[in-house]
């Protein structure tokens, strides 16, 4: 547990996340509106196609996160609870922690499609699989991206990964740290804006490993 926290802090330090969001009162206890009422209004707003209604079921962590306007407004207890829950929600590729294929990872990072569906107009195909990472992150030098999330250019360099040390226990430990963040960001940054790609099954453990490899591998364009 301590180790996880330490690694989380390390990651914050390395990545330089500065979530300077506003501190505000929790939205929890608003003037007498019952949760059932909010739920009823919410459910009223969607087509009642049973194929998709599972999307509206909240898990425990989502319920906790919904109570606070931002990560910074969360009390320590809630932060702890989400970290505890989400550490259980990480699984690894069947061959364990080993470097994947950064070229495959790049495809997933570049692909903006996946998961969007509506009964009108245009939807992603069920087979579309992508992280749409550039929406929020700057990753390869010179490629335009968003600024919602931390900048990831030279990510592997910042982690100090080289050809020589990448297969050392320390190198693999760093790979594991990044794997876990991409698989389930909330285990390190509770209620962060980043989706829990692996936990929800949007990306498989192998996909996530390829993305982590793309971010860290010395030969990846991220670190050129």
């Amino acid at each position: 547990m301590k180790k996880v926290l330490f690694l989380g802090l390390l990651a914050i330090g390395l990545v330089g996340i500065s979530p300077a969001q506003q501190k505000k009162q929790p939205t929890k206890k608003e003037a007498g509106v019952k949760p059932e009422e909010v739920r009823r209004v919410l459910l009223s707003g969607f087509e009642q196609d049973p194929k998709f209604l599972w999307k509206l079921e909240q898990d425990e962590s989502q319920r906790i996160c919904s109570q606070y306007p931002s990560m910074e407004a969360m009390p320590a207890q809630a932060v702890q609870k989400v970290i505890e829950l989400e550490n259980k929600n990480i699984t690894y590729p069947q061959w364990g922690i080993a470097w994947g294929d950064w070229k495959e990872g790049k495809k997933l990072v570049d692909n903006p499609r996946g998961g969007r569906y509506a009964s009108y107009g245009f939807s992603d195909k069920p087979t579309d699989k992508g992280g749409n990472c550039y929406a929020c992150h700057l990753i390869e030098k010179g490629v335009p991206g968003g600024t919602m999330g931390p900048q990831l250019t030279g990510y592997g360099k910042r982690y100090g990964i080289t050809k020589e040390n990448m297969n050392s226990p320390e190198g693999l430990e760093k790979l594991k740290t990044v794997y876990k963040i991409v698989y389930n960001s909330w285990h390190a940054f509770p209620c962060s804006a980043m989706p829990r790609f692996g936990y929800h099954g949007s990306l498989s453990p192998e996909d996530v490993m390829n993305i982590a490899t793309y971010l860290l591998h010395p030969e990846s364009p991220v670190n050129k």
Binding site: Q67, S70, G146, A193
Partner: peptide, 29 residues
């Protein structure tokens, strides 16, 4: 307001994921 902050769905978004906070941010451009 409560729905604005409700984390929901397979990508964990709420309205506030993009449209809240003091930090100025961009989604792509």
């Amino acid at each position: 307001k409560q729905i604005y902050y409700a984390r929901l769905g397979p990508w964990d978004f709420n309205c506030a994921t993009c449209h809240a906070g003091q930090k100025e941010a961009r989604i792509r451009a």
